[in-house]
Design a protein around this nucleic acid. Structure first.
Lengths: 344, 344
DNA sequence: TCTGGCACTCGTACGTTCAGAGTGCCAAGG
DNA sequence: CCTTGGCACTCTGAACGTACGAGTGCCAGA
């Protein structure tokens, strides 16, 4: 409710902001005295204590034990991210470094690999990059290769540089001329189109071939359609898992479930899938559906070769993370990757 | 030297074996009393103590503090692996499970992904599988696709099912007939041959084309040769990193360098590269060149589609690991993967 | 060569103490 | 009504000392 927030006047918000900043920096519960010393709040510790009591009442902070400092709750971080902090833009040298690092990539795999390592280095956290997905991309070329009399290899090349291949076992021998004809027709209709559109465009193709060849044509097309639809083949790349040990220092117990989650590509894909397409998404602690990641936060955003986002990337770190900096890094990297993809 | 080993009579070896087994089981230094209780050594603790003193003198075991139990050293594990233990064969149900799990794979990526997860599960350690490398495999097909007037995509398909693609920027426009001709000639000469042989077989190809087309042909071939030679593109797949937390319990500090090592594909590739082709290799603790892995052991072996090994796979765990069981699992998995690859 | 006994060493667990940090509350001041 | 300084209270973490138990090394005897 809006009322809840209104109860917190300007100074209380400043106190919350200060608590978050200090806690992120020191990793230790922060007390009233230390707070006024570091930040020019212009009030005494006692006043801050009162504000803290109010903030705790509202559930934005909490103390691990009586007579310990305060720690932001998930709700506190949420308020911080939504209202109290700005995304911190990358500095010019940082931007140059990003650009330079990504420009060296030679191939889609390489782009993704570099991106994920870069992101891990910049944020000193665990980085996740999803390969450009098939559904949003368009067909650049479809190739058919006869490998054996009744065996055809199907190669699908997308505008994002992704290549998928499938073996097709045909019902009978496949003539080279038929194959060439089929290849030409498929490409004439499908090139440049969105992947999901393609099946509709090729529906009537078998009818154009002689009776004898139709089973083969249908088989090939069926495999092609499968490949086009195969969303689950979406791959993910990880980097920076070693950073887990750093922020696991407080909670060494939590590192195991996190590692487990990171190995489950399905989990990661679902996490990224929850990201709004263009806008940056921040999921804090328990906002996260997956239990093993209850004490982590995820900052993710879509990236794409044009205006459109074709995949997601992000960072996984402790709830106690530098949100403005992380968000800045994630946004910057996503932008540059988008540019790289658009250029190639 | 042989003399060193001869100093250790039958019973001392039995004691060492018992120490290794107990320590692997309990993860705690093992004392003389506990040893005689668990194993039927037929002698008293005092005698065992004398043997232990001798073993320590020779450097096979060592005690963390005075008046603590003994722990095997790297040298002790080495002797254990070389002389005192047999590779433990998988049970029939386990073999069936392996077979069943791998049989479901639909494609090379899937085979590797399943293999690595299976290995991690079986050994409860970190599993590493190298993709079948290019150098040992043979050419199944090479495809050339004109994407734009001066842009050709080169696709290399190997007998292991691996697909590599490269963009080629040609010096001038490429005629479709030239491309078809080139494609046919390349495949006629290269199909079925080992990758490293191919450049030699294609050396004189440009001379067969008209003067005007030679630059294009040469450019395409140059890219092809690069692709063939590109060993560094070798990829690796990991699984089971969450298992690190289990054996990191004793030494939580060591988990970070291990995670770092695991992220460096170059390091992993070099590690696997040190594996003898066919025989199983066990590198224990400091035998390992890479510093971060000084307290881990690596069990690796080559696997291949035929008699020949085309890549390596293995497991990384604490020096204190169940060597017989791990070696059995690694060997069994490698065999089945080889069979799967041979079938496809 | 093996065995039982014995004194000795050390690491760990446990209980106690102590200091410091931080809080909550209250009464006084603006 | 909000802010402030003071004060008593609570609690954690570190430091210290003690007791216990596991394990050893050695020696004398079988």
């Amino acid at each position: 409710m809006a009322g809840e927030v209104r109860q917190l006047d300007e100074r209380k918000l400043a106190v919350l902001r200060a608590i978050v900043q200090d806690y992120v920096g020191t990793e230790e519960p922060v007390g009233s005295k230390a707070l006024v010393e570091r930040h020019n709040l212009g009030v005494s510790p006692a006043t801050v204590r009162n504000d803290m009591a109010a903030l705790e009442e509202e559930g934005y902070i909490h103390q691990p034990h009586t007579s310990a400092g305060r720690i932001p709750t998930d709700k506190g971080y949420r308020l911080f991210v939504d209202k109290l902090a700005e995304i911190k833009p990358m500095s010019a040298p940082e931007r140059r470094a990003i650009r330079h690092f990504l420009d060296g990539a030679v191939d889609l795999d390489d782009v993704v690999a570099r991106t994920v390592r870069l992101l891990a280095q910049l944020t000193r956290q665990v980085a996740v990059v999803q390969y450009p997905s098939l559904s949003r991309s368009t067909v650049r070329h479809i190739e058919l290769v006869a490998l054996a009399p009744a065996k055809v290899m199907l190669v699908l090349i997308t505008n994002t540089g992704r290549v998928e291949q499938r073996m097709v076992d045909c019902p009978g021998t496949v003539g080279e001329t038929v194959l060439a004809d089929l290849r030409a027709r498929i490409n004439a209709r499908a090139a440049g189109r969105r992947l999901p559109e393609v099946p509709g465009l090729l529906e009537e193709l078998p009818a154009l071939f002689e009776q004898a060849d139709r089973p083969t044509v249908s088989t090939v097309l069926a495999t092609l359609f499968e490949t086009l639809a195969e969303q689950n083949e979406e791959r993910i790349m990880l980097a920076g898992t070693a950073n887990l040990t750093r922020f696991g220092h407080d909670f060494p117990l939590t590192i195991q479930p996190v590692l487990e989650a990171l190995e489950e590509q399905v989990v990661l894909l679902r996490l990224l899938g929850e990201t709004a397409d263009a806008a940056m998404t921040v999921r804090i602690g328990r906002e996260n559906a997956y239990e093993g990641l209850n004490s982590t936060s995820i900052v993710s955003v879509g990236y794409g070769s044009g205006d459109e986002s074709v995949a997601k990337l992000g960072v996984i770190g402790p709830t106690r993370m530098d949100y403005p900096g992380t968000m800045g890094a994630v946004r910057a990297v996503a932008r540059y990757v988008g540019q790289i993809l658009a250029e190639s």
